[in-house]
Amino acid sequence: MARRLLFVVQEALFFTTHRLPVGLAMRDRGWEVHVAGPADPAVAARITAAGLYFHPIPLGRGGQNPLAELRLLAALFMLYLRLRPKLLHLVSIKPVIWGGLVARLLGLPAVVHAITGLGYLFIRAERQRGLLHRTLFRLYRFALRHRNALTIFQNPDDLAMFAQEHLVPADRWVMIRGCGVDMQVFAERSEPLIDAAHPPVVMFPARLLGDKGVREFVAAAENLRMEGAEARFVLVGRRDPDNPTDIGEAQLQQWVASGVVEHWGYAEDMPAMLARAHLIVMPSYREGLPRGLIEAAAIGRAIVTADVPGCREVVRHEVNGLLVPVRDGMATAAAIRRLLDDAALRHRMAAEGRAMAVREFSVEGFVAASLATYERLLQARGERL
């Protein structure tokens, strides 16, 4: 029987951008690698072209319709029975909760749960501390207590919260900080020239979500423009209508029409896009460990971000960027102003960021840590990778 690894992901695109190197490494070791996620023909074609297999499943990331969740559970149940994976790697909230529940019920041999951030559901539940909060924790607790499972955390804050709530057994977790970046692809790039015809570019490189801090970025841009700042403020990313914090098309068009920000759309070539920026700003509310900030550090850009879990793992205050209070557009504006006005500081932070990215966030390190996690689970069953 083929040795099968099955990834279940919340979005197919994020598999290709974040975990494809792990899939390729397992393929090269003779494993049959499968990926299950919401239907996306273009991305599915890239996955199959790499010698992997793709399975569309009815996973709606933003919905909370009980019937839709039951359809997802049924699809996962049938997929697991058909493939009988020796290793199951679940990535993000719904795959971990529902995929982990089915894996435990079916007794699959080995499961990796990847906590990539807690998302809008947790942010909302944390404020309300009501039924949603309790339900999420109960579901996590059941899913994560598979008899042969490991849970990957990307930052110590998420781990501390899961440990405090007794959601994951004390000896069944590993810390892998981020998904790694190819330091050759994201090679260091010099800043573009700044002169009267080419003002500095302040870039927000993320999905256009409220929880990513896009409103604080726009508020900061408005404030700085009123102060007379000579800079271009640009949004680089797509909307995400499935996410309840998506800003909406009308809001986006209003911002662009006002002249406060520009929208450069979604970028396939992120190294080239980031190279056009002088400063990267993403004042997110909470992250697992944001790959976009690692990419920005890798090419050599100073960063402004919020002092929240995940973001402060990539940006060390006054070292490779500035941390600001969460949900604070005025503080974000002040940090941007400081780095626009002090090119020497900006360049020093950029160099520190590149060195830190190479040292701590290489794709080679991420792949090695992921394979070591698989090896640990297989060894528990007397097998090898």
Rank of each mutant, 00 (worst) to 15 (best):
L20I: 06
A125E: 02
G51Y: 09
D307V: 01
L377A: 00
R359L: 05
V261D: 02
L121V: 13
G329I: 04
L67A: 14
D158G: 03
V358A: 10
P199I: 00
R104P: 01
Y53M: 14
T151E: 04
R359A: 08
L52H: 00
L20A: 02
V112G: 03
I115Q: 10
N223G: 12
L159C: 10
A302T: 05
L345A: 13
M349P: 01
L81D: 14
F77H: 15
A368H: 03
L67R: 11
M78L: 14
F361K: 10
N243M: 08
D269S: 08
A39F: 08
A74V: 14
L79Q: 09
L132R: 03
F122R: 10
D182W: 07
I280W: 11
H89N: 11
A44E: 15
D240R: 07
Q254N: 15
E295F: 08
L108N: 07
P169S: 12
R4M: 02
I57G: 00
A250S: 13
L289T: 12
L235H: 02
L131G: 08
M330H: 00
E227D: 12
L385R: 11
R239Q: 14
L88I: 04
A372D: 15
A36G: 11
L139H: 05
W255R: 04
L293N: 05
E383V: 02
G321K: 04
F162Q: 00
A206Y: 02
H317M: 03
A170T: 08
R127P: 09
A306W: 05
A297H: 09
E287F: 06
P21F: 04
G23E: 01
A114H: 11
E222V: 00
P38N: 14
L136M: 12
N223D: 12
Q253C: 11
G60W: 06
G100H: 14
M270F: 08
Y285H: 03
R82S: 05
H89D: 11
M26S: 05
H198M: 07
L289H: 14
Q64Y: 09
R346W: 07
G107F: 10
R147C: 09
F366N: 07
A331K: 04
R291S: 14
L224T: 03
M270P: 06
A220H: 04
A125K: 08
P200T: 03
T135I: 14
E188G: 12
G288R: 01
